[in-house]
Simulated assay, not measured.
Amino acid sequence: MHVPQERTTRHSHYNLNYHFVFTPKYRRHLFHGAVREKLMQVFRETCLMRDWIVLGMEVMPDHAHIFVSVPPKWAPSDVAKILKGVSARRILKEFPGLRGGEGSGHLWTPSFYVGSAGNISAGVIERYIQEQRKHQVDDDA
């Protein structure tokens, strides 16, 4: 696993890391063997094509975790939509048997979990911002 660190684009410095959890439709146990390996490969390739860095990933039989660092131009909802959409198309194409039965034609539930993480806790940021105001007041005096 990579350690999250600050990255740079032409217009920004950032450390935006998102933990996503996706579950298959009806929480089916789909991700074993070749299907699991293919899903991990698709996630890696999808991220690589967009300059997203995979910091961690685990695929369980009934859900998938991916921890990624993304540039600020990408909203978390767009990242989720792309990861789920690309993986669903490629997995269902390669493993058409997954289409049958419940949830036919759909790999993922419409919902997902996302949490953000960086190197600094929310409390540290709040204290830093409060201290900035105190320094401004002192400078104005």
Rank of each mutant, 00 (worst) to 15 (best):
A64G: 15
G103C: 10
F20G: 00
G101Y: 06
L30F: 01
K81G: 03
A88C: 08
M57S: 15
H19I: 00
H19G: 02
D62Y: 04
C47I: 05
L55P: 11
G118I: 03
V86E: 08
R44T: 12
S121A: 12
P72G: 02
Q132T: 04
H13I: 07
A117K: 03
V79Q: 04
G56N: 09
F31A: 12
A88S: 13
G56L: 09
R28W: 02
H13Q: 08
H135A: 12
K38Y: 08
L48K: 14
H2M: 14
Q5C: 13
S12D: 03
R99W: 07
W108T: 00
G85Q: 03
S111L: 04
A88G: 10
K134A: 12
V59G: 12
R89G: 07
G97V: 08
K93I: 08
I82W: 06
R28C: 04
L107Y: 05
E6H: 01
K38L: 10
G105P: 01
P76S: 14
L16I: 11
S116G: 01
H135W: 14
Q41E: 13
P61C: 10
H106F: 05
V59C: 13
Y26E: 00
P24A: 11
M1Y: 10
V54Y: 00
Q130L: 06
R127Y: 06
P4G: 02
P24L: 07
F31I: 11
G115S: 12
Y26M: 03
R89A: 09
M57A: 15
I66Q: 03
G100D: 13
S111F: 04
K25A: 01
F20Y: 02
L107N: 06
S121M: 12
W52G: 08
F31P: 10
T8S: 15
D78N: 11
K93R: 12
I91D: 09
H13P: 02
L92G: 10
N17T: 03
H106N: 05
T9N: 01
K25F: 01
Y18M: 06
N119F: 07
V137I: 08
D62V: 05
A80Q: 07
Q41C: 13
Q136F: 12
W108R: 00
G103S: 10
L92W: 10
S121Y: 07
E6A: 06
V86I: 13
E37V: 15
W74S: 14
P72D: 02
P76K: 09
I82S: 07
K93S: 13
P110V: 02
H13F: 07
E131N: 14
S116C: 00
I129N: 14
N15G: 13
K134Y: 06
A122M: 12
H11W: 05
E58M: 10
L98N: 02
Y14T: 00
G123K: 08
D138A: 15
R127Q: 08
R7I: 08
S12L: 03
P71F: 00
H13C: 07
H29C: 10
R27A: 02
A141D: 12
G97A: 13
L98E: 01
R28I: 05
R27Q: 01
V59L: 13
H106T: 03
V79F: 03
H65F: 04
L83S: 08
P61H: 10
L83P: 08
M40A: 15
S12K: 01
R89P: 04
N15F: 04
G123N: 09
F112H: 09
R90C: 14
M40Q: 13
V86Y: 07
H32P: 02
T109L: 07
T109G: 09
V114Q: 00
